[in-house]
Design a protein around this nucleic acid. Structure first.
Lengths: 338, 338
DNA sequence: TTGTATGCGTTATCAA
DNA sequence: TTGATAACGCATACAA
């Protein structure tokens, strides 16, 4: 293994000079050339562990997510990865399963592994960031708001819920239920608030028993929607406040449809479905689903950029960025959709 | 920040003894107790960077994947993560986009970051493992076979393709096309071979123009299937050799169905679809899809266990594990559908 | 600008 | 078994 001393010897300089060249400090041009030549010839690559120990900070960023199997969060991950990698950072993906204990463990690892920074979509209403903040490590909250004084980038979730519910209203549905996520999840609560507002806008009644809190996964959406549709006074439409719940809702509606057909009941007008989010792996056409597409990847890139600014030394008060949330009509990145 | 010297002072021992206690070497019981007490009181956690530098190996494992947005690979990741984490290792997720250059970069990072080991689903037919192997780092290939002398865990892809195509034959389809992945991807080639065998078994003709190589994503499956269905002598069924291609195929079939209906053509018998893989986010019922479910998570756990054995010092010839591929009947994932 | 020498926090070697 | 101390590879304070 080639070390910095090998390069120094070969270039006829001290290790300090090699280090300076490698880190862009001012060095006489001819020595720079000599060092670079030696580096190339020896195929030298600095040991990042030693560098981290000395600098007291590594070049890896932790990305703490509630569910890496949710395409929404993998898209966030891609966004973060794209810009982090560009800047020379590696990204460690940490999966919390929405479990505050697992989350706390990962945050502790990030702290003691001297990671450069953390981007977190919090599982807990109040994640264990104290240790990291005490060490003045950069932290950015993404997607879900946290109470701590850190940079945050989220969607305008109230607006998203309102828009999605509004689409259902426009399509003529009158009795619109809402299936959302856990009460501890800010996105779930805010989008449900949006649903309420949209119904108010339309002079409809956002009755409390039409609001169901499930988990934010497929099974949660399926169970909640099935239950709603089985009621004597079933809703004529369901708003799912995230993508996976939306998948579950669609399956529940499809099953219900088949059940009714089997039991000889008239094929009444089908149940409307609205979804805040995308269906990247839909196996059916989604023309009649009221979709409010998001750009989670943009969320990730924004969060990563904010983190990099902090790592670059930016020292201002915590910032809150609220992205509109709409996926751009054409491009791959976020565009403001007015 | 508390360091090992602080603990040593508090416990009235040397740093060497603290280190020994922390690493389970033999130490007099009373001293062990004293050290543990000091660790607790001071809330001491070893700095993993320093530890890595000294040990010349970190406790993070790189997981190199072609596409973290594919649920198949996120499931592999969960499997790896589960067992690695249990053993005290962190997992870094590296996304190569099936690009050999990106893959090579990540492998170089893994090498110079002194990562403990690498689990890789190769993007390249011959990934750049030389550096890692020269340093005797543990490497396990998962899902896709590689030419190097490393542990490998894969499915029996020929058998999987054969089984899926066989299901379509059983259902009475006679002209069965196959949409598979790139020629450089072992899984794509092997499953196509299985398709060929199944057709032979049934006395059918696996005509070469019924085999299409697409990319292994939704758009690839959609385009290839659309093209097949638009031919004058269209196939009556399509075998998709992975999950995403399967999604694309289903969408193409649905669109074709609608087009025919719109053009007033008779609603002939619908096109059969077979898929090697799962549809975790299907938005429609999949009763009439010939699915051969997999357990990618099991692939991941096996690979991680093999890696851990190597990290534990196991020094035997490279092993090849071929998993049946069928998801377990009882587990949480899709049950075997006979 | 350059070199020397020290320290980052831990583990491993060697004597005791 | 235990303690003193020398590495691990790099970056920087200080001196030149």
């Amino acid at each position: 293994m080639t070390r910095i001393v090998d390069v120094a010897r070969r270039a006829g300089v001290s290790t300090a000079t090699v280090s300076r060249v490698l880190n862009g400090k001012s060095v006489r041009p001819e020595l720079v050339a000599a060092v670079r030549a030696a580096v190339d010839e020896l195929d030298y690559v600095p040991d990042r562990t030693a560098r981290s120990l000395r600098r007291r900070s590594s070049d890896v960023v932790a990305l703490v997510l509630p569910d890496v199997e949710n395409p929404f969060f993998t898209a966030v991950a891609r966004g973060v990865e794209d810009v982090a990698q560009e800047a020379g950072f590696s990204v460690v993906l940490c999966n919390t399963d929405d479990d505050p204990a697992k989350e706390a463990r990962y945050l502790a690892v990030a702290e003691h592994e001297n990671m450069a920074g953390v981007v977190i979509a919090a599982a807990s209403a109040s994640p264990a960031l104290a240790g990291l903040l005490a060490r003045r490590r950069a932290v950015v909250a993404v997607d879900r708001a946290v109470p701590d004084a850190v940079d945050q980038v989220t969607f305008d979730n109230v607006a998203l819920g309102r828009r999605a519910a509004g689409l259902l209203v426009e399509r003529g549905f009158r009795r619109i239920a809402c299936v959302t996520g856990p009460r501890a999840t800010t996105t779930a609560v805010d989008r449900a608030t949006g649903w309420r507002l949209a119904l108010d806008d339309a002079g409809l009644v956002p009755s409390d028993d039409l609001l169901v809190h499930a988990n934010f996964r497929v099974d949660g959406g399926y169970a909640a929607t099935s239950e709603l549709l089985a009621r004597p006074t079933a809703p004529d439409a369901v708003l799912a406040t995230n993508n996976l719940v939306g998948v579950g809702a669609l399956r529940a509606v499809a099953d219900r449809h088949l059940d009714l057909a089997a039991s000889g009941a008239a094929g009444g007008t089908s149940v409307g479905v609205g979804i805040v989010g995308d269906l990247p792996f839909a196996t059916s056409r989604t023309d009649d689903v009221a979709l409010v597409p998001l750009s989670p990847r943009g969320l990730g890139t924004t969060a990563a950029r904010m983190l990099l600014e902090r790592l670059d030394g930016l020292d201002v008060a915590p910032r809150r960025v609220v992205q509109d949330g709409a996926a751009p009509p054409g491009g791959t990145s976020a565009g403001l959709h007015l």
